[in-house]
Structure formats: C-alpha cells, structure tokens
Design a protein around this nucleic acid. Structure first.
Lengths: 125, 125
DNA sequence: ATTGACAGACTACGCCTGTAGTCCAACGGA
DNA sequence: TCCGTTGGACTACAGGCGTAGTCTGTCAAT
C-alpha cells in the first residue's frame, strides 16, 4: 500500500475528499468544467484509483454507483509531506517554512496559526 | 524556464549543490556506490540537465570538464515548496507543519528553530 | 419490447522518465 | 605512435501517465 497517487488522480481525490460520495456523473460535470476533461478520462482515473484501493464504489439507493475515498486526506498528507521534506529538506521542517516564507511572505493569520501550533506542542511535553 | 527536475536528476543536483564543480567521473564514483547507477546513466542525466539549462559545463585547468549548477538550491526549494503547498495544502503552510508533526513528532531543536523563525517575522513588521 | 445514454472494463497511444548501449573524438600511458 | 579508457552526443527501450476511444450491459423513458 504505497499510496501512490498521480497528479491527475489527485485532482479527483481532492474533490472526493471535499465531498463524498459522488457519482461518476457528478465528478464529470465538475471536471469537464474546471479542467476540460473528457468523461472517459474521468472514468479511467476512477478505475485506476479503484484498482489501487484508494477509492471504492458503493451502490446507493436506486442502484446508483457512488464513489468514496478509502484513504483519508490527512493520512495521505502525512505521507506525501514526510516524503517531500525528506527529499528536499533533509527531513527538517524549519528550513522548509523558511523557504516558503521567502518566496511568499506569510500573512498574519498564517503566522498566528503557526504560533498556536508551536504553543500546543510545548503544552504536550 | 519551468525548472522541472525529475527525481533522478534531483539526486545529481543534490550532489552539485553540496559541492561543485564536480567532474563526470567524480559524480559517477559517488553514484555508482550510493545508487548503483551506471556511468552512462549519470551521463544521460547530466546531458538532460544541461539541455534544460539547470547545470553547465566549464573547462577547468587541463581541459577537464567541470559541472556546476546554474540554478541555486534555494531558488529551487522556493519554487517546489510553493507548488507543493499549493497542490496539497491549498497554499497554507500551517496545516502542512501540523500534518508533518502528526506523522513524525518534532524534536526540540526543530521546534526551537521554528520558533526563532516566527520571532524574526514579528520583528520584520 | 425498443431505444438512447451513460457506467465501467478493456484497449490505445504518445510523451516522459529511468536506465543504459553505441559511436566517435580526445587524452594519457606504453 | 598505438591502445585502452573516458566524455559526451545520440539512440534505445520499457513502464508509467495523461488522455481518450471501443465495447457491452443496464436502466429509464417511450
């Protein structure tokens, strides 16, 4: 279960993580509009995600197929983030934040949120 | 100049960012040992990076070819980090740090470093 | 019962990527 | 001067990925 989700597949997952279950039709409607994807493209991606056990289909009322994630967003975020930090920042989070802030200054709410996070860590000790 | 560097290419870049210039031979020695890569593989990657204007060759003393980066590490880190944060965390850094910390608790020095970073941001205002 | 439209499995296909081989020119040692 | 080794340009090739077409069955409306 290596949790490998490609870029195109991730677009689908973002939708399903935001709202699920969704039917193929509902997904297609959004993705045709937002991404210009063909119905068949959406279908292929759904199949590939299903084959990887990342999503699953379930029969809803009236026999309608609903798709929903089997992997939750937070689990996925943890793994990709850990990989990213390892690959690009030698496993250290602070330099990542520094690089990010250099490229795009953090607004006050971002800083406050980070501060709250750090404070909660001190408490946990 | 989209700065797209693949995983295998990145391995080379990490070496060149740590120490440069390096000759093809020097790179090959390290990568044969560390990664089991063939000399020819290293060569292909060097060529591809050069074609993308990410590295450059320069004639050293004695006509030896030395490779060195044209893109500095910090620039690269800023761009990949921004993309990553946008793609996975909707452009917000605090949730990224939260996810990272959930998967792998931060040790004291990491927390201290982050705190110092935040403090310096307050000063800048 | 017939038809039309969509769902999903399977197939297709070109480009990118990882990995390496071929070929030729240059250089260093015998 | 000749040979073996190396560098680099070019070529190769399989598997993954983005993108979509074909085929078949099903369900809804007629």
């Amino acid at each position: 279960m290596t949790l490998d989700i490609t870029d195109a597949e991730l677009v689908l997952m973002q939708l399903l993580w935001t709202e699920s279950p969704l039917t193929a039709r509902e997904l297609t409607e959004r993705l045709e509009k937002d991404k210009g994807w063909h119905r068949k493209t959406v279908n292929t991606l759904l199949s590939r995600l299903a084959r990887k056990n990342v999503i699953q289909r379930e029969k809803g009322p009236g026999g309608i197929s609903n798709w929903h994630p089997l992997v939750d967003r937070e689990t996925y975020r943890k793994t990709v983030t850990a990989s990213f930090v390892d690959e690009h920042f030698n496993g250290e989070i602070a330099p990542l934040v520094a690089s990010f802030a250099k490229g795009r200054s953090l607004d006050d709410s971002q800083v406050a949120e980070l501060q709250a996070l750090l404070d909660s860590m001190f408490e946990d000790d």
